[in-house]
Design a protein around this nucleic acid. Structure first.
Lengths: 251, 251
DNA sequence: CCCGGTTCTGGTCGATATGACGTGAACTTG
DNA sequence: CAAGTTCACGTCATATCGACCAGAACCGGG
């Protein structure tokens, strides 16, 4: 096929009136934790294509807003939750034919929320539900468009995000025990973590968790009451990624 | 301002004929290393806006190609270099007014090349040049649009890429000494690395470098001839990111 | 040809980080 | 109050990391 619909070399010389038109959308992979299970908020489509199928919530970007603002707006519309800092852009998707009706490029965001369940009802979407991420990955729940790939990429992103930032605290409440926080890591990474070592590592990390003086109540099985922490603010960054650690350092 | 030009809630109910039209472009931050200096390939704009200013090369995405393919095509047009695996998408930019003429969302890619200098001449751009990244960051060279931000984000990305992948080998030749490779890390991270420790770490990393039997010639100052390596293939990944290491592991 | 200068490469050593595990404290239920 | 559970803290062996040293292998000049 011949390219150059609009002098595909740009921007050093092109006709602004002559370019392929796209719709730009933002899609938000909203992750939450329900009883140790990682879940994703999906909406059911009410029209073709992919009528009746589940999809990641999203919507058009407006010319008057930034991508971040568009994602923010969609998040609020979907969950009534207003928390700018936890939105992380992680990819753009524009394969031809990904939407059979028109040319769409979508910019995908990751949002991590606690207990989004109560808030789903307030959505203005026709139908919204929390679905186990595992069911999406193994194909039990089929997603519209290329949303399976998007969810997969979101999951990959949150996995590294857990390690390099304190984003895990977004999964839990404003105060939480280290056992709760640990269960987030265990669910997302699919591993078992030693409680004592986990405590050592997390507390050593600067700005991730801050001890409140208070203690939680014991669970139904008893046990020593756990210390309550609140989130540090070491996980609000704007751009792509950071963390230039060293491979091996000299003098 | 009122939103909802096209029922901004989508995709659970919208009119496909009624949405804001955008141009979608791909911009490529092409980094290379010239005598220990990190440089970026820029093109000079030949028209308004930002006439005469430097910009990151890029161009329109076509409806018939993927974003990766568009980036690939632009890279070839700009440098005649064909190497798919070293293109990494790292961000999307769509602030209103970033292009005063129309609504443009750009998807930014990072490309790392060796010795792009000889190849710049073959570009079909009006004027292309390698510019020190430092000069861009400190404002000595002003960039058009929001390209300064894009270059900054690209640099942040390549910094972490160096650590988690063997991408550093893309900066050097097909065979290289560890001193050459080390100078890449030192330039990008802005630090001094101990040669002996660097060797230990790099060689321990699986699939990053592979020893050829051969040895390089000594430099003008003499010295023991360095062993020659070639790149392993541990740095071709598609999606966003990977690497779920653990914070602290249990049994 | 020897010698000082240079670079590469292998090794040592102490500090720190990590994984495994033990023990007492504090709370539950019966 | 006894038994069971969870949390908090400490210990210990091992692995990794940063600093550094010394020998090997090359250069140039005397």
């Amino acid at each position: 096929m011949t390219t150059r619909t609009a002098r595909a070399q740009a921007p050093a010389g092109y006709d602004p009136s002559q370019f392929p038109a796209f719709a730009v959308t933002v899609d938000i992979v909203i992750l939450t934790m329900v009883q140790g299970e990682l879940q994703v908020l999906l909406v059911r489509r009410g029209q073709a294509p992919f009528d009746g199928m589940w999809a990641v919530p999203g919507g058009f970007k407006l010319p008057t807003e930034t991508l971040d603002q568009a994602a923010q707006r969609e998040l609020v519309e979907e969950t009534r939750v207003d928390a700018a800092s936890l939105l992380t852009q992680f990819g753009a998707y524009g394969d031809p034919g990904r939407d059979p009706r028109m040319n769409v490029v979508t910019v995908a965001y990751l949002a991590v929320l606690r207990d989004v369940g109560t808030v789903v009802a307030g959505s203005d979407a026709a139908e919204a539900a929390l679905v186990k991420v595992a069911d999406v990955l193994d194909g039990s729940v089929e997603l519209a468009f290329d949303h399976l790939r998007i969810v997969r990429d979101a999951l990959a992103r949150v996995r590294v995000e857990l390690e390099v930032s304190g984003i895990a605290t977004a999964f839990v409440g404003t105060t939480f025990t280290l056992a709760e926080l640990r269960s987030v890591y265990e669910a997302v990474w699919g591993v078992h973590l030693d409680g004592a070592n986990f405590r050592r590592s997390i507390v050593a990390e600067q700005g991730w968790v801050i001890p409140t003086g208070r203690h939680a109540q014991s669970g139904p099985a008893g046990g020593k009451p756990a210390e309550l922490f609140r989130a540090g603010r070491a996980w609000k960054h704007g751009g792509p990624i950071r963390r230039p650690r060293r491979l091996t350092k000299g003098k």
